[in-house]
Amino acid sequence: MYPPAFEYWSPKSLDEALTKIQELGHDGRVLAGGQSLIPMMKLRLAAPANLVDINNLTDLAYVRADNGHLAIGALARHADVVDNDHVKTISPTMASAAPWVADPLVRNRGTVAGSIAHCDPEGDWNSVMLAVGASVVATSTSGQRVIPIGEFVVDFFTNSLVEGEMVTEVRIPRPTGSAGGAYLKLERKIGDYATAAVATFLDLASDGTIANAGVALTAVASKNLKVVEAEQMLIGQTPSPELFADAAAVAAAACDPESDVRGPAEYKRAVINAYTKRGLAKALVQAQGGAS
């Protein structure tokens, strides 16, 4: 119930924050929404010596439609992307996932970028980002790197930031054609992490074939899993239930879930299979201009 002691820093500008992060190195940790970090500290699973609170960097609290992409600043809360017009137009997968992350109150505080940085394999956002081909902007006192999400998510609670860096923005590319997407999550109740979930994304060429596709899975591997093989199967093809069933079978085979109190691995695979099919079908309807 009570977190361990730490030193607290609350920079008023990004520069100040980056300097502090640089200075603290491994002894410092960014505090964003705190909706993962504080619970871990309360259960004494984490004991950072220093916290750099970025909640005063209100310039980073944006959700913007930039030229080629949707830009989500480090301080945008989960709630900011629920029912957001930019999100709905640019990333239907993200729009579909947003209401199902955590619960309404946690969403008011937790940040999208913090969740992505956290790299919890049961977290929802990284599957979405993997499916839509997002990238992460990492900033430090020495400049910026744009990291493709596939390289950013390293493993179980591990990202590829280096000392002195923080995530300042997440970028989701605009689809080139007519796009649709879905995030189907099996959760036991509101506020639960996924037992299994599937992010799907389809971008259709003008001839109706699939120009680009995304399939990524939550909670069924040691990290959020992009199923490249399934995506490759879809790209260039004319969508059909059979095609989706084949892709779903590939996704189910690609994951490596653990048997636990939420069900045996076999069950989770079956759910991945069913949800991939359903998700692709939903994405297709939406891409073809129907209601999702």
Partner: peptide
């Protein structure tokens, strides 16, 4: 009556717990 138990019952898979 957890979802995986229902699924297990429908598919003849033993899903303890």
């Amino acid at each position: 009556v957890l979802p995986h138990r229902v699924w297990g019952a429908l598919n003849g898979v033993d899903v303890k717990p």
